[in-house]
Structures are given as C-alpha cells and as structure tokens.
Design a protein around this nucleic acid. Structure first.
Length: 585
DNA sequence: GCCGTTTTCGGCCCGACTGTTTTCAGTCG
C-alpha cells in the first residue's frame, strides 16, 4: 500500500459524496435519510479546519454530522486508501449507469426501472430505447415523460462520446493534482492550463504544465497517484492518465526558460493562439510552444513568461479567462482591455442564505461571523421568499429574522447588514409577498426557480415584469442553468439587459461552480449597455461557500466585465446609494 | 446514518408540479 501524503479533507469529502450519490441508487431515493446523513457528513468535513486524516476515531465523532459509521469509513480510507463500501457500490453501479441519474427527469427509481425492464445501462442504450419509444411502455411512464427525457438528452449532449465535464467536477481534481505535484522539490512552476484555466463552463480534459529541469521523478509520481485508474502514456516530458472518475489528465514538463510560451500554447484557446501566431508572422517572427523567435536572426525574443511575450507583441497582458479569439487581442493592442476584478476588490456579498431558509445549512449568526471574518463591509441576507415551497420564509418568519438582525448589527458595528430576500419570479413575473411588504426589505434579489420550459416570449415578459418592480435590486442566476445538468431558460437577452440598465437593476454573477450564471456570453453582451451594473454574489447556503466568490470573480473576468461596473466593489456609501435609487424609483 | 435522549429507538424541512393515474409515484427544490 502506498503511503503518500494523507488525503485532504476535500479528497475524503469527495469519497463520501460519491458514496451518497451511489446510495441514491441503492436506496432508490435521493432523499433517504442515509443519503442525507452522508451529505451532512460531507458538509461537516468541508467546514473543518483541521485535517481529518490526523484525527482518531473519538475526535472524528465530535465533528458535526459524523457518527460511528462515517468515522470508521474515514479511518479506513486514510489508513488503506480505500473504502470497501464505496468499492462495492462502484462495482454494483458502474459510472455509465450513474450518469443516467444526471439527466433531468431521471431519478433513481426511473434509472433502475429502465435498467431492470429494458436492460438500459448507459446513455447510449437509453438513446436507442428512446428512439424505439420503449420507455412509454413502462409502468408509470408515458409519451410525455419519454419526450421530456429525450429532449433533455439531446439538449445536454449526453452520450455522444463528446460529453464535456462540468467545471465543478474538473476543478477540484485539477487543484488537488497541482497541489500534490507542486509539493515535489523538482517542480519550479505548475499550473493547470487549457479550458480550465480559461474558466470554461465545461472541460474536455485537464492539462497540467510544469516547469522543471528534472522531469523524471515528477512523471513517476504522477502516474502512480491513487487517483489514477489507467495510464495512457508515460514518457520523459509527457504523460497522460485517466482518473477514477473517468477524466483524462495530460501532464507536460518544459524547461523553466520556456514556461511562458508553453503556458500560452497550452492555455489556448486555439483561436487566440492562431491570432497571435499570425501577428508574429506579420512582424517577421514565429511563435511556437517553446518561444517567440525572430525569423531572420533566429534569436529568442521572449519565452519565460506570458507577460514578456505579450509585451514583445506590444500587447497588454490578456487574462487567460479572456483568451477566446473573439476580439480580445484587438482590445489589448489599443489599450482597451477591461480592468478585471480580483477577489480583494469585493467589499460585499449580496446573496447569502442561512438556516432560516429551508435549504440553508449554516446558522445566521455563523454566516454573519464568517462574512465579517472575510473583511467585507456589507452583506445582504437573502432568504427564500414564501412562494418557494419548503425553503421560503413566511411573513412572520421574515419579521422574526429582522428582529434577530437588529442584535447582530450591534454585535458587528463595522459590517452593514442589509435585510433582503431572494424572491421567486412566478410564471407570470409576479413576486412573493405584496408591494408594501416587499418595500420593507433593504435589498432584494429576484430569481427564476420554476417553469424553465416556457417559450422565449413568455420568459422575457416574465423577467421584464420582475425587473420593473422597484423592490428588485438584482436578478439572481439569470438563466437558472445547472452546468451540464439543466439548460438555462431561453431569453431575449438584449431586451432584458436594456431593461435592467434602464431601471438600475443589477445583473448577478452567481459564483457557484454549478451555475456561473449569468453565463459569460450574456456578461459580454452587457458591454453594450453602459448603465448596466453587475453584482458578484456567492448565493452561499453554508459558511464554506462564501469563498466561492473567487469563482464568481473568474466568471466576471471571462465575461469581460470591467470591475468599475461591479456594484459590490464600490465603497459602502456609493453602493447603498445605488441600491436605494432603484427602490425610490 | 446521525442525533438525542423520553438512553437504544423514533424522527429526520415536505409541498408543488407533472404526468400518470382513478388516488398516486417520482422528481425537484
């Protein structure tokens, strides 16, 4: 048994999360108490500051949500690198079958039904069964459900062998690999590149680039990692593996002097690189993955850093998130690149839940304390509105929370605490509560949580009506998409953005890796509306999710958003003035 | 599976929506 570094809490949490996913099939329910218990344990583990691998059984039992059974499984994993229960479930429910549960409308019951009755065990086989209209013959199924599932399979591009991995799955694996390999003494620099570095919604495979003069030990370590399921190649400077979760990872090692050129090359995008190379040719130079060369003298013009290469072109540094070959090089040439936000620019978080919401997982007091810890100047507590079944707050609950917040304001005098709500945009654009009650909030986010299938015209009208309400400061996760799992609603985007700009309604950039909503394409369209303000929010339901703002910032960069237009980078007074303006309109 | 205690079992956010039923199952949030 390999005794490499102890698994991080994130790695252990990932095992338990997979266990929970597989148990949904085993139990035939996504809400079984056993499943929920594991999901709580995952939360508890992620919220821990101490490494779980260093704790003995008794100390593990003290962690919220971890009992005897989970504690034993954690110890088993730390000591042996395996979890027998997980291995057994993996054998029983292969990845192809599990993937079926990701299709909207396919819960565990339906997945098991099509497997047992039709022998369907993969998306490919499901497509065949759908084409033959065999699903509608099953008990409890019919033509409507069959068509709905067929639509979902088509729209999300499932099972075409070309399916890309959602960023929420790829990013943690890449970060873990970079951390593990980065600790090796032979590694001078290391970064993940490709579409992941560009912060694309979905990723084909993970590319990792290393600068080193001694690649051998790095390669050996890489192909021997516990996460490796299969080694596709193992060479001097280039290796490739497939992870246990089925993701391909390519590792490339270059000399430190060539790192910048290689980083540029492997980050892409292809279109961006082609444009750069054309520019080089026009200037009597050539650019390849090793260096920028003077074609006449053969001398290296630049190679060590990306910045040096852009500078040699007379270009400003183009952030990786912007490199899609859609005009960014032109902006870099004329000095018109947007000033992009960084995490340190954020002064407030304007979309935060607590356990007052049914789906919140950290108490209000803990959320406020964590927000204050992050050094923020203002926060909007935005529990769900009453129209959202289960999760929403009645009027009485709203007033009760407002009362609690009064005390918290005394406790945190340096933090401006706004009492807000995340309202539900109804099918006709109506909102929760009533006009007077809504105007009693300090700050409201309004979001779509239902009726994702309306036609463009209806969706647009619905949004326009919500935007026109003076209590609505921000539209939350505009399209409602869940990356790789649910397509967003269809909208007349220019019309929506124009209305938002005209009314002083902010456009949320939702930081959750599952959402990253509004999508980058919409954010870029926002450049056409100079009065449109953006808001980078976490939509945190747990204290650990407040750190997701870093992903929201990256999403804003991918959307070419200038930080001067991000309302929660503004000083407190300016921000409050902006928020109040909409409400007095 | 976890928790708390009424200390070893019973409770654990459960309603809306859809599509399928003829009184309800499954999914989603």
């Amino acid at each position: 048994m390999e005794h490499s570094a102890s698994p991080s809490n994130g790695t252990i949490a990932a095992q338990l999360a997979e266990l929970a996913t597989l148990l949904k099939l085993e139990e035939g329910s996504a809400q079984s108490f056993r499943v929920r218990a594991y999901e709580k344990a995952v939360d508890g583990l992620r919220a821990m500051t101490r490494p779980a691998a260093e704790l003995n059984l008794a100390h593990l039992l003290e962690v919220e949500g971890i009992g005897r059974s989970t504690a034993l499984k954690i110890r088993e994993y730390v000591d042996t690198g395996r979890m027998e229960r997980l291995e057994a479930l993996r054998r029983k429910y292969p990845p192809a079958l599990v993937e079926l549960t990701r299709i909207p409308g396919m819960g565990p019951k339906t997945v098991l039904l099509v497997r047992d009755e039709l022998g369907v065990e993969s998306v490919e086989q499901l497509r065949e069964a759908l084409a033959a209209q065999r699903l509608r013959t099953l008990p409890g199924m019919g033509s409507k459900r069959e068509e709905k599932i067929a639509r979902a399979v088509e729209r999300l591009g499932f099972g075409e062998g070309t399916r890309r991995t959602p960023i929420i799955e790829a990013l943690p694996i890449a970060r873990q690999l970079v951390a593990t390999l980065g600790a090796l003494p032979e590694v001078r620099h290391i970064d993940y590149c490709g579409s992941l570095r560009r912060f694309s919604d979905t990723i084909g495979d993970i590319d990792i680039l290393v600068a080193s003069t001694d690649p051998g030990p790095i390669m050996d370590k890489f192909v021997g990692l516990p996460v490796v399921a299969e080694v596709l190649g193992h060479g001097e400077t280039k290796s490739a593996i497939v992870t246990t979760s089925g993701l391909q990872v390519d590792l490339r090692v270059v000399a430190p002097a060539q790192y910048g050129a290689a980083l540029l090359y492997f980050t892409g995008s292809k279109a961006h690189n082609i444009e750069l190379r054309q520019r080089a040719l026009a200037e009597g130079r050539t650019l390849n993955e090793y260096e920028l060369l003077d074609s006449v003298t053969g001398h290296v013009v630049a190679s060590r850093t990306e910045k040096a290469i852009y500078r040699a072109f007379g270009l400003g540094f183009v952030a990786p998130e912007m490199r899609e070959g859609i005009g960014e090089i032109g902006l870099a040439a004329t000095g018109d690149l947007p000033r992009l936000a960084e995490v340190g620019d954020l002064r407030g978080d304007l979309h935060v839940h607590s356990t007052w919401s049914g789906d919140g997982r950290s108490p209000l007091e803990a959320m406020i304390a964590a927000v204050a810890d992050r050094g923020l100047e203002y926060v909007a507590i935005t529990e769900h509105g009453e129209d959202l079944a289960i999760n929403g707050l009645s009027r009485a609950k709203v007033m009760a929370e407002r009362f609690v917040l009064k005390d918290l304001r005394v406790e945190y005098p340096d933090l401006t605490i706004l009492h807000g709500a995340e309202l539900n945009i109804g099918v006709d654009g109506s909102l929760d509560y009533d006009h007077d009650f809504l105007m009693g909030f300090d700050f409201c986010v309004a979001s779509v949580h239902s009726h994702f299938d309306l036609a463009v015209v209806e969706q647009t009208l619905r949004l326009l009506r919500a935007i026109s309400h003076p209590a609505v400061n921000v539209v939350g996760h505009l399209t409602g998409r869940r990356i790789g799992r649910r397509p967003g609603i269809e909208l007349d985007v220019p019309e929506i953005l124009e209305a938002m700009a005209a009314t002083g309604t902010g456009l949320e950039i939702n930081s959750h890796l599952d959402r990253l909503d509004a999508p980058a394409e919409v954010l870029r369209r926002g450049r056409d509306y100079p009065d449109l303000a953006y808001v980078i929010s976490t939509d945190a339901h747990h204290t650990t999710e407040l750190g997701n703002s870093r992903w929201g910032v990256q999403a804003s960069r991918r959307g070419w958003v200038d930080k001067r237009r991000v309302a929660n980078t503004w000083p407190r007074q300016r921000f409050l003035k902006w928020a109040a303006a909409k409400r007095s309109s």
